[in-house]
Amino acid sequence: MKYLPTLVIATLVGFLARLYMLRRDYRQYPSYPQGWAIHLFLGFIGGAIGAIIVPAILEGDFSAVSFLLLAASQFREVRNVERDTLSSMEATEMVKRGTAYIEGIARVFEARNYLAIWVALSAAVASELLADIGWWRMAAGVLVGAVLAAVLVRLMQGDLIGDIASVELSEIKFEGALVVIEGTVMMNVGLPESRRVYEERALAASVRPKGPNAKATLANLGQMQAIAHDVSSMIGVYMDVGEQEFIPMVRRDPATGSLRVLMVPSERDEDAFLAAIRRVPVLEGAVRKPLTSYAGKMID
């Protein structure tokens, strides 16, 4: 079994790459430990597929490529499963993630399995090319895999809201029952009691896009909902089930394309609030680039 070192090292590198891409952050998704077990095993399968391709082709078994087709359809299923899970959990979220965010998360999980395959494949190729140097080829495989994993992770990293827009605190004003932030009407808060809560505890911010591309991206409803969801999961909301008047609001000022974020956080900390908004990811599905079009350039 002369390919054994290659198989072992490439599978291991693919698996470790998947592990490296799993993050435990404020979202707690995938959930730990069960969700992790699922994705690590899928990463292992991906690594094994990437590892086996190289020896199979060296042996002249070109039909091994059809393995990849199988993997692709399996991993596409991952996306469906993730979407179903998140959609069915949506009813239990105080502030909804929104379909755009769910779609984005599901896509990331599918993509990362393919990345695991690439990493394992590169490790296997390196290991086989350097078959002459004996056991050192395993180290070479690990090195190539690690570099590729680092590069891929860097390439797959999306922007944050803080990268495409400037975020500043805004003043909250009342016009009768209407909550107004910098001229944008946010909502009608009917009860004087609730208005008092807003006066004492609420925070508001303006998200000003840097340029037309950012403006078009921020106009996406899914992106707006994602901001509401993520900010409330980072700093907490002051609301109970059914208290709809305290639900975090994101509205758009049509004149400037700025977003207004209004929420009643559980702790009133201005810096934490602004930092939370800046750290919301820009959804891949929300990104628009009008400046790459002829008409878009004419307007700018």
Binding site: N188, G190, L191, P192, E193, V241, G242, E245
Partner: peptide, 25 residues
Amino acid sequence: LEELAVLISRIFGAAVHDLHNDVYI
């Protein structure tokens, strides 16, 4: 008026809106 609005909104888990003419929905 306000008390009724609070009580009903809490039953339904709904929001109270003020129409500025002593009418709440």
